[in-house]
């Protein structure tokens, strides 16, 4: 529902039509407009160019532009749908849509699979999982001996890699996630349910009739 004065023309946000974006996602047009307010803040935090670069993404996540985080970097790469090193508004909305509480579980499972498919081979491979484990443990306070890491990987792949070919395919991942639903916890952002409340300034800027 448009909340502002309609001028009888469609307003484009970052060259994206909010009505079209809403039709492709779980968001309403008002919610897409609200997300544009957030996008403008993040995309202008370092360079005001209407695009989010990795530094701005990490800064928005951690309020600290120097923090190294492999997981955040991986999420950025998945948001960067066109592989240009930046996230435009369309990428931002379509990617955040995955994290909406109402988005089907299947979409969340697919995104989480890509998150762990580090080399984009179409499989979650043991070496990629170990690489993520080592990088993240190195960044955190949590310390584990290599022997313990190998044991955890053995146990994980024994359970997840049903055909024991050394890698996890999408069907095996779906099965594993269904037995370990906590893995999808990070794939839902309750904030997205109340996005128009969190960013009310769109009310004054809206020119879109829904």
């Amino acid at each position: 529902m448009g909340c502002g004065p309609s001028k009888g023309r469609r307003q484009y946000l970052g060259n994206e039509d909010p009505v079209f974006l809403a039709s492709q996602t779980t968001f309403s047009v008002s919610e897409v407009e609200a997300l544009f307010e957030l996008f403008k803040t993040i995309s202008s935090s370092v360079i005001d160019d209407g695009l989010i670069n990795k530094e701005e993404f990490v800064l928005a996540l951690f309020k600290n532009r120097t923090k190294e985080n492999l997981f955040a970097s991986r999420i950025f790469d998945l948001f960067d749908v066109k592989h240009r090193g930046v996230i435009d508004f369309g990428d931002f909305v379509r990617s955040l849509h995955i994290f909406h509480p109402n988005t089907p579980l299947e979409d969340k499972i697919g995104f989480s699979f890509k998150l762990y498919d580090l080399d984009n081979t179409g499989f979650i491979e043991r070496k990629g999982v170990k690489q993520m484990l080592l990088a993240l443990l190195g960044e955190s306070e949590m310390k584990l001996a290599d022997e313990a890491i190998e044991m955890i990987l053995d146990k994980t792949f024994l359970e997840a890699d049903i055909n024991q070919d050394g890698k996890i395919d999408m069907t095996e991942w779906q099965h594993f996630v269904s037995k370990n639903p906590s893995l999808l916890k990070i794939m839902t952002l309750p904030y997205l349910r109340d996005i128009t409340t969190a960013f009310p300034s769109f009310v004054f800027n809206s020119e879109v009739d829904e």
Partner: peptide, 25 residues
């Protein structure tokens, strides 16, 4: 340690996209 590798990755990353929404609105 009774966690699988992916639980540890999620936990140790401290990853939470809600950071995008905090202090930005």
């Amino acid at each position: 340690l009774n966690m699988n590798a992916f639980d540890i990755i999620s936990l140790s990353s401290g990853f939470d996209l809600s950071g995008l929404f905090e202090e930005n609105n």
